[in-house]
C-alpha cells in the first residue's frame, strides 16, 4: 500500500509578523519556516504504518516554491521514501481550490490508497485543501482524526466533534486530516538527516498538470490585512483581595452587562 502525506511549509507562528506596504501580505524576510505542526503528526502516522508493515511506500507531497523542499527533506529524514513538489509560475498565488486541483492532478497517477495531511496549515488556517483533494479524487474522507487503525482495506478512525467524537470506518482509498494528540512526531536522527539528502524529490510543473492561464485564476482575494483588535481595557484592579473581587464582579455585571 502507498501513502501520500501532504505537507506545507509555513512560517513559525512564534514569529513576529509585519504587514507589508501593500497591506495584503506579510513581510517574509527574517521569518523562520517550518513544516506545519499538524502535518508532522500526519507524517509520523504514515511512518508508523510503514514500520508496522501496513504500508510499502510513503511519499511526501507539497505545492509551493523551491524552498518548500526544506521541509520535505525533514519529512524524508523522518522516514518518507521520496518527495513530489508541485511548483512553477503562479504556485504561490494559488487559492486553496487551486492547490487542491494541482495536488489531486499530481497524485492521480501515484495511486495512493491513503492520503494523510494535518487538519489545517497554521499560516492561512484555510482548513480545506485535503478535503478538496479527497472530493476531487472521489476518495472517502474524514477530518480532525485523533485515532487511526488500519485493518486490510478498512481504516477505523476517531474524528473529533464539539464535545465528543465519532468512530468511523472508511474504506480505502481514503483521505484523513490529522489532529494533534494522535502521536508524538519523532525528531529526525543525524544519520537519517544524512540519508534524506540522497532521497529523490521530483518536481511537477503546474503547466504539465494542465494548470496554467485561466485555470490558475482564483476567485478569492485578500483585500486587506490588519492587526486584531487592540482596544482591550488592560485595567489592573488594585486593592485587597475581597475589594478587588467585588469590584471585578460589579464591573462585569454593571459596566459590561456580561453576567
Amino acid at each position: 500500500m502507498k501513502i501520500a502525506v501532504l505537507v506545507k511549509r509555513v512560517p513559525d507562528t512564534a514569529s513576529v509578523f509585519q504587514i507589508d506596504g501593500d497591506q495584503k501580505s506579510v513581510k517574509t524576510d527574517g521569518l523562520k519556516f517550518v513544516m506545519s505542526p499538524y502535518d508532522e503528526h500526519a507524517m509520523e502516522l504514515a511512518i508508523q504504518l510503514k514500520e508496522a508493515g501496513k504500508a510499502d511506500e510513503v511519499i511526501v507531497v507539497s505545492a509551493g516554491p523551491d524552498g518548500a523542499k526544506d521541509v520535505m527533506r525533514t519529512a524524508l529524514a523522518m522516514g518518507a521514501d521520496s518527495g513530489l513538489l508541485v511548483t512553477g509560475d503562479g504556485v504561490e498565488s494559488l487559492s486553496s481550490r487551486g492547490v487542491a486541483q494541482a495536488l489531486a492532478a499530481a497524485l492521480k497517477d501515484f495511486g495512493a490508497e491513503l492520503i494523510l495531511a494535518g487538519k489545517q496549515a497554521v499560516d492561512d488556517d484555510a482548513s480545506q485543501v485535503a478535503e478538496r483533494v479527497a472530493e476531487l479524487l472521489e476518495y472517502a474522507h474524514a477530518s480532525v482524526v485523533t485515532r487511526f487503525e488500519l485493518e486490510g482495506t478498512t481504516a477505523t478512525v476517531d474524528r473529533e466533534i464539539e464535545g465528543g467524537q465519532y468512530t468511523l470506518e472508511l474504506p480505502l482509498p481514503a483521505v484523513c486530516t490529522i489532529q494533534k494528540g494522535i502521536n508524538t512526531p519523532r525528531y529526525p536522527t543525524l544519520p537519517n538527516i544524512m540519508k534524506a539528502k540522497k532521497k529523490p524529490i521530483a518536481d511537477k510543473n503546474l503547466a504539465d498538470l494542465g494548470l496554467s492561464g485561466d485555470a490558475l485564476n482564483s476567485g478569492i482575494a485578500v483585500e486587506n490585512l490588519s492587526l486584531p483588535r487592540q482596544d482591550r481595557l488592560n485595567k489592573i484592579i488594585e486593592g485587597d483581595n475581597e475589594v478587588r473581587v467585588k469590584e471585578l464582579v460589579r464591573m462585569l455585571k454593571e459596566d459590561e452587562k456580561a453576567l
Binding site: 497554521v122 478569492i220 490588519s226
Partner: peptide, 15 residues
Amino acid sequence: PVYAGKIVSEVSITA
C-alpha cells in the same frame, strides 16, 4: 484570523 490570530485577513470572494 491568520498566522495564529496575529493578523486578520479581509478577503473578497468573486467565485
